[in-house]
Design a protein around this nucleic acid. Structure first.
Lengths: 263, 263
DNA sequence: CGGGCCATTGAAGTATGTCAAAGTTTGTGG
DNA sequence: CCACAAACTTTGACATACTTCAATGGCCCG
């Protein structure tokens, strides 16, 4: 492991020793107080934490890591050391199936945290792959835990973030279990639109970063069915599609399509 | 919620005041050290925690709550105060859908913890309903947090439990996204068999506590398809089914059926 | 400019949802 | 403890939705 970051990152206060290998992440160390003014802190650890927790975030030694499109941020089975927070870009998290294929579990956008699954057994249970050139903050877990031991606020924020992810996973599970593929695709568009809006982008018009195959895998249907559903919604005038560019024309139409119990 | 965070350091050993309403659960209080010798502690908070954490568990004021078959343990939208740990029995957790129906998200068995989703917004995001007469330990969250502030071991155990649930949710999501209902039903049987085995019951023969409709909702298919798949597996000699009683005769058959890419 | 990846669309056979009815099990009250 | 009602399960039939295979065309990157 390379270690030259150590001096730069650790601030004035009692620096923690970087115990063992990989205690500090590789990549560009964050400048002090970076979390406090981060554009996506609202979704991340840095939200509304008190003075102490803010200082701890600086001492933890978070580093920004770049991942090129198609490259993994971490891989299923790999030893777990870091949680990640997406700073810019998009990733998919996936699980490999018995027959060697890949199953997409979820998509991660700026502000989302990922890697929690690694806490359970000390190894990542999933693979995270960049869907476009992406930057993520690597948060060394051991050191984060030491910070949590010193700050109740930080600890509670972490717990709350994990719980928030669980809530979103619940919604996702509901979406995926819709009976008809058409409902799932409509639901996916609405979900994505909501994610964009939460992050300050347009809810009406956006570029999907994932392939039809990824969407199909996520929704438990074939890529052809995804494509056909999109074409159908376009024909009905609910959306406009051109490859990955989507424009929503009638949210209500999609909403009905996502839950219609019709015939 | 009620009381501004009474900042840690409540000079150890004495019982915490029960701040505000509902700080302590109703139900039968656990005797001291109950967690330490609990039959399902391996899955729960009480596993391998140190002496201090053990004492904290006693001070937190956990109470055993009984829920009759069909009754809710908590309900979507209800204010969150307690995490629960299943002591005996089975529950389903569900989300209500736009059209007033119910979507089953997961099943909870002895040792499983539930209610984490309430941490995110201070309200439960799901409903938990007993599938048979059930007993669960109600863990007051505010007080648990105070315990976590005093014991890093307890805090880390909680974090690990949440992470474990996330890992299981991932597997569940993969199962639910299988293309063919038959794969999903086979996967469900294997999953259930595994859950039984983990808990020391027979992996080969068990009684399902949930209805075909619940299974269908969970798997995103109709109850008729669940029934037909089970009948099919029985005809192929993989299992024996009589109403909710299931005996597994050929695990390998099921395993193939759960992931077969055949025609 | 060409090659590879991705998206769209068609056709055909299969899987699944829905409706319907009959058979079981479970729970309740006499 | 029995009888009856309600809830649940199984099975059939049919229309529809979906997967798969296949072919075509568009788009992006080097």
């Amino acid at each position: 492991m390379d270690e030259p970051n150590a001096n730069a990152v650790q601030s004035a206060r009692l620096p923690w020793p970087s115990a063992g290998r990989a205690a500090l992440p590789t990549g560009t160390p964050l400048p002090p107080s970076a979390c406090k003014s981060c554009g996506v802190r609202h979704f991340c650890l840095g939200r509304e934490v008190d003075e102490l927790a803010g200082q701890l975030l600086d001492r933890i030694g978070i580093a920004r890591k770049r991942v090129h499109k198609g490259q993994p941020l971490y891989h299923e089975g790999e030893p777990f050391s870091f949680l990640y927070a997406v700073y810019i870009g998009t990733l998919k998290s996936s699980l490999s199936t018995a027959d060697g294929a890949e199953h997409v579990l979820t998509f991660k956008m700026p502000g989302d945290m990922l890697g929690f699954d690694g806490i359970a057994n000390g190894r990542y249970a999933t693979t995270a792959t960049a869907l476009e050139d992406t930057e993520a903050c690597a948060i060394p877990y051991e050191r984060l835990m030491r910070g949590c031991a010193e700050s109740v606020a930080l600890q509670q924020r972490l717990t709350q973030l994990m719980a928030s992810q669980m809530v979103r996973d619940c919604r996702s599970a509901k979406l995926i279990s819709a009976r008809h593929a058409e409902h799932r695709v409509a639901g996916f568009l609405l979900q994505h639109s909501g994610w964009m809006e939460e992050r300050g982008y347009s809810a009406r018009e956006f570029e999907l970063r994932m392939s039809r195959a990824d969407i199909g895998s996520y929704l438990g249907t074939s890529l052809e069915t995804v494509s056909r559903s999109l074409s159908l919604f376009a024909r009905e005038g609910f959306i406009k599609v051109r490859s990955r560019r989507v424009e929503i024309l009638q949210v209500e139409g999609l909403r009905e399509a996502s839950s219609a119990r019709c015939h």
